[in-house]
Simulated scan of single mutants.
Amino acid sequence: MIMIDLTSDVLQFEATTTTDGLMDDGYTIIHSAVSRELLEAIDAELDERFRSTPFCEGGFYGERTKRFGRLLIRSDHVAQLVMHPTIRALAETALGPWCDRIQLNLTQAIELHPGALPQFPHRDQDMWAGDIGQREYLINAMWPLTSFTEENGATLLWPGSHGRRALTDAGEGPMIVAEAEPGDAIVFLGSTLHGAGGNDSADVRRGIIVSYSLGWLKPYENQWLAYPPHIARGFPRELSELIGYAQHRPNLGNFEGRCPSVLFDGDPDAALAAVDALRPDQAEMLADYVAAQRPASTAEGRRS
């Protein structure tokens, strides 16, 4: 049984205090967003997995870097980061205009070892071949597990490189080093140019990335494989919906025309009736259309 801890190590903030910076600059840093003790507990829970995970292969992931996902089953406390109210409010602000609901895109633990090279500057939105500058596709929250410093490879960000500027900004502008401590959250848009710095220290640099994307996109981490129904049914309902056990209206992500949460009770033996899952505006338009058709159908039936 997976234990999910949603208790009170999360500190409350007004999302409006950070929204302006995020949307104006493409990033914001929320200091002391959670207690340092919470991150220490998560670090301890993930320590053995960090030690056993091989180094990545390839220049983008980094040959002196370790990465692994599925953090909701590897730590009892990661759900507090995923469900952080301020971060989720920022995600709703940034993504809400373009989707019916947001979704969890990934949870990933990252460990940069001494000698790690600076990462290729990139924009995470480029995972999808969509229009650039027309909408935001995702938002990231980087949670340090150890101190993030310039020497050990803290995340590099290019302020103002987001949104429509992603069409022309290739990193010529000024760059900042997002130095932060465990408990802080470095939040940036998927259109913001960024990358890990190089680790010139003698110590490893550990962090967690939690990202959220438009609910109709294919997520980076396949959440239904990471958390199949027999696992996800033990999550709080709001969390299971965030990882994909809810339809994105209209009707996306269904199972046999139903919400995929029907699988929490096992693979249904009986045939299921498909049920509309429509946005309110669509339901209203459909109701008007159906109402207009019924009298005509009845009259046609009398004539025949």
Rank of each mutant, 00 (worst) to 15 (best):
W158F: 12
G197R: 02
V177D: 02
Q223T: 11
S261F: 09
R237A: 14
S161R: 09
L145W: 00
M142S: 07
T168G: 08
A196D: 09
A180C: 08
H162F: 05
A246I: 05
S261D: 15
G153C: 13
T146A: 07
A273R: 04
A226W: 01
L263D: 07
W158Q: 05
I186D: 04
A178L: 08
W216Y: 10
G266T: 08
E179D: 12
G171H: 00
P174T: 14
A185G: 04
Q223K: 14
I243F: 03
P260K: 11
G244E: 14
I243L: 06
G163E: 13
A180T: 00
G253C: 06
Y245V: 07
L214A: 11
A271E: 15
I186F: 10
L239Y: 01
I186T: 10
N199C: 01
L252Y: 04
A202V: 00
D269W: 08
G244D: 06
D269P: 06
S201A: 14
G183P: 00
T155S: 15
E238C: 05
V210W: 04
G183E: 02
H230G: 07
A226S: 12
G163P: 07
A180Q: 06
L217Q: 10
I139M: 02
K218Y: 03
D276I: 00
V262K: 08
G266P: 02
A273N: 11
E238F: 03
G198H: 01
A170E: 06
E221V: 04
L225Y: 00
I139V: 15
Y245L: 14
A270Y: 06
A196L: 02
R258L: 12
L189R: 02
G244W: 05
D265A: 15
C259I: 06
N152S: 05
L157F: 08
G253V: 09
T192V: 10
D184I: 04
A196W: 03
A202M: 05
S147W: 04
G244I: 08
L157N: 10
A246P: 05
P236H: 07
S240P: 11
R206V: 01
I139K: 00
L242R: 02
M142T: 15
A274C: 10
G190V: 06
K218Q: 04
S213A: 14
R233A: 03
E256Y: 08
R165D: 01
P250R: 09
T192F: 00
W216L: 13
A166M: 01
P236F: 09
T146W: 12
T168D: 15
S161K: 04
Y227V: 02
L189C: 06
N140V: 04
L242N: 10
N254S: 15
G195L: 10
Y245I: 07
A180Y: 04
C259K: 08
I208D: 09
G190H: 02
E238R: 13
Q247L: 15
D267E: 11
G153N: 03
A180K: 01
D169T: 04
V275P: 03
F188A: 00
I208W: 10
P236I: 12
L239Q: 09
G173H: 12
A273F: 11
W158E: 09
E221Q: 13
P182A: 14
W158H: 09
G215A: 11
A271N: 09
E221Y: 00
E179Q: 03
I176P: 00
G198D: 11
A232G: 14
R279D: 13
F235Q: 12
A271W: 08
I209G: 08
H248N: 12
I176L: 07
W143Q: 02
G190Y: 10
